[in-house]
């Protein structure tokens, strides 16, 4: 069907506001970042140039590789854990909670931690996990341990715990959304056909939940890879990820170097997301 000319124009006009907003506030800044990443910097100023020094240093430094490796490690482990927990919670809400009222109520309860800020949710772990914190003193008084556990706080454990705590919700919502759309008669049909519970889960529910899982995955991966506050606070500044590398550079007025790191991070994340989108055609599945 071909639209009349005037309709095409209306279409363009309708799309224009969003296009302009995105162009100004998303595309333009990114172009600026890419341009600045080729600039040079002195101690307190930056000057326009076209040089590859920032990238050369970035790729030549072992720190970069270690830090990117660390960022991926955090992202992957957080992803696996949030997926496991997120899917379980969503499954429970979709299939075990019978009434819509309770589904809505319980889903809202999942949002309770979001009533306060991200930072507060993160920092509230510190007194809990500390050497003389609630976790250690409880375990000590129960006689489970006789020395406070040092690795509870300011360690990879605490970083991961906080990541999972903060990000699981972003997994729950999209998965729940896809699970709720699954036609219950499909499951009944599978059961009638003699499929066991695990078989239904693996062959019916999981394939249908893929778009939700993928959206959740994209949320979690991008949030974790772009984070810097969680790693800083929960590792007691002892671990680094790419976000901290960038924030350190910004703090020291090394904008071009920060821009170069950002560009590399952006490309990395884009590659990951493109790869994920190839696995599932979200547009088709929704």
């Amino acid at each position: 069907m071909s639209l009349p000319r005037s309709n095409t124009a209306t279409g363009w006009l309708l799309a224009a506001p969003l296009t302009l907003v995105l162009a100004f506030f998303l595309v333009l800044p990114i172009i600026m970042i890419v341009i600045v990443s080729f600039w040079g910097a002195t101690e307190f100023s930056i000057y326009p140039a076209f040089q590859f020094d920032n990238y050369k240093f970035l790729f030549g430094s072992s720190v970069t590789w270690a830090v990117f490796g660390n960022t991926f490690r955090y992202a992957l482990i957080t992803w696996a854990l949030t997926l496991g927990i997120g899917f379980t919670v969503a499954y429970f809400l979709a299939f075990h909670v019978r009434t819509l009222t309770w589904q809505i109520t319980l889903a809202l309860i999942c949002t309770v931690p979001f009533w306060t800020s991200n930072i507060i949710r993160m920092i509230s772990w510190i007194p809990f996990l500390g050497r003389n914190g609630i976790a250690n003193s409880t375990l000590l008084s129960m006689g489970v341990i006789d020395q406070p556990l040092e690795w509870l706080l300011f360690s990879d454990f605490s970083v991961m715990l906080t990541f999972v705590h903060i990000n699981t919700f972003f997994m729950i919502v999209p998965i729940l959304n896809t699970l709720l759309r699954i036609d219950k008669s499909l499951i009944e049909a599978a059961r009638d056909g003699g499929a066991t519970g695990p078989q239904i889960l693996w062959n019916v529910i999981l394939p249908l939940a893929k778009p939700g899982i993928m959206i959740g995955t994209i949320f979690v991966l991008t949030l974790v890879m772009g984070d810097f506050t969680t790693v800083r606070f929960m590792s007691g500044s002892q671990s680094a990820n790419v976000g901290r590398l960038i924030s350190n550079d910004v703090g020291l007025l090394q904008y071009p170097s920060a821009a170069a790191t950002s560009v590399v991070l952006l490309c990395t994340v884009l590659i990951v997301v493109t790869g994920l989108l190839r696995l599932v055609d979200i547009r088709k599945e929704l």
Binding site: I126, G130, R131, F154, R232, G236, S237, Q238
Partner: peptide
């Protein structure tokens, strides 16, 4: 020293240093 586990944490803001000390970390 860091690799040997000498440090509990590093601090960047005033409040962090207060909390680290006050909590006995």
């Amino acid at each position: 020293a860091k690799k040997a586990g000498q440090f509990r944490a590093f601090w960047k803001s005033f409040d962090e240093s207060v909390n680290l000390m006050a909590s006995g970390e």
